[in-house]
Write a protein that binds this DNA or RNA. Structure first.
Lengths: 228, 228
DNA sequence: CGCACTTTTGAGCGGAATCAATATCTGTGG
DNA sequence: CCACAGATATTGATTCCGCTCAAAAGTGCG
């Protein structure tokens, strides 16, 4: 068994597990696969830049990608952090000809890279399955993004961090423990905080039984966090 | 010509001018129309509540609808303000069975009200046009919503207000003038501000040649705002 | 003309950003 | 295995933005 074949099998598996392909039949998945190439990224690699003409959209197979915008002084604000299974820039399939944000690998990452025009054309000639899958993906992203706005506007830094920890510990009983899936500086950005603010939020949460050792988090009492 | 007929013609016109129907052919539009009823709302009418089972999605034909979420203490945060042509809760067509936010008329409003199940089923049997139209609508909303996050995180109150005014004055030369399309308290919510903060932002902008008389806005020099 | 609602203004406070310094972690090579 | 360098994270001090509460002023409608 050669190495390339193994790699392709792995890619294929990850491709199938993507949110975009989750509810597709085989035929549609194959159509989509034909529009795809694969790309490996190293940390800090730029996937595309705001203002670039939009040619491709992406699914994350492994690793993380950070979507962000910059203001005139160069300060950056994260819009979304995409992990395995997430897709991004697919909002440009049905309109929009330039990327509206920067995309940068936040880790070693493997991406599926779809040609926008080919996917759009494919969606024009199939029975609607492809368009429905895209719509489903966009709907999920829209919900997440609206959640994010509400969360930003309604909750303080400590509350947002507590909420994130609870989401990560989903399904565990108190006491829960897990490993953060990415760096704290990236997490800070995702939550709309400066890294210092995240640090201070963790310090506050220590008083409620949250222990942080590097990337390992231990939560003594999940209900104490829920009560915030 | 009777009154009801006139009214229906008006509804039909507004229906056609909706973002959702913008790129549809007649056949698809008719299919969609068959899933619709119409509703008139008075200011502060509740369209649906967070947690309600999702049965319908909506297009705004006239007036404004506010989408918002509440925290445990009852404080409210606006997620989106929908005006003529906008649709909302269409993110639930392909997944999600409860509304994730409150929707409230912010004005006398006329809405098209679509049965989610019927539209979903219609989208399963057509050639994909319906699904593509929905995907296009969701893509637009997603872009707006991501813009909102970036804007919130990157700009101060004064900058956000200035940006909003520039958008509203789109296409005019300096000096520009126009009327706000809704109350200041609603605008404040849309921009993620307390009403007092909006007021103070206007006060600050007075120094840059922005004059506010009730809902009438006059901008002496648009470039001065762009420079913020 | 008066009442209710919306908006503005003022004062004080609190949360998070910024800047700066220190501590901790990670991976590399001696 | 340890020492070291560079990156990452924490802590402290300060500033500033925007929220809250309270009161006054403005607006519009019957």
């Amino acid at each position: 068994m050669n190495r390339t074949l193994l790699l392709n099998e792995r890619k294929k598996t990850l491709f199938v597990e993507t949110k975009l392909t989750a509810n597709m039949d085989m035929a549609t998945m194959n159509k989509l696969m034909e529009c795809a190439t694969f790309a490996n990224c190293y940390p800090r690699d730029v996937v595309f830049r705001q203002g670039d003409p939009a040619t491709h959209f992406y699914s994350v197979l492994s690793g993380y990608v950070r979507l962000y915008r910059q203001n005139s002084e160069g300060r950056e604000a994260d819009i979304r952090v995409c992990g395995p299974g997430d897709s991004f820039a697919d909002d440009l399939i049905f309109g929009g000809d330039t990327y509206e944000y920067h995309a940068q690998a936040a880790d070693k990452a493997m991406l599926a890279r779809y040609d926008i025009n080919r996917v759009r054309n494919a969606s024009l000639v199939d029975d609607g399955m492809l368009a429905r899958a895209i719509a489903g993906s966009l709907a999920g992203q829209l919900q997440e993004t609206m959640d994010c706005i509400a969360n930003d506007r309604l909750n303080t830094a400590v509350q947002r961090v507590a909420l994130y920890l609870l989401e990560q510990a989903e399904g565990q009983e108190s006491p829960a423990s897990f490993r953060l899936s990415f760096q704290k500086s990236l997490l800070a950005g995702k939550l709309g905080l400066a890294p210092e603010a995240l640090s201070r939020a963790f310090a506050t949460l220590k008083g409620l039984g949250v222990h942080v050792h590097g990337r390992i988090i231990e939560i003594e009492d999940m209900d104490a966090l829920r009560a915030l």
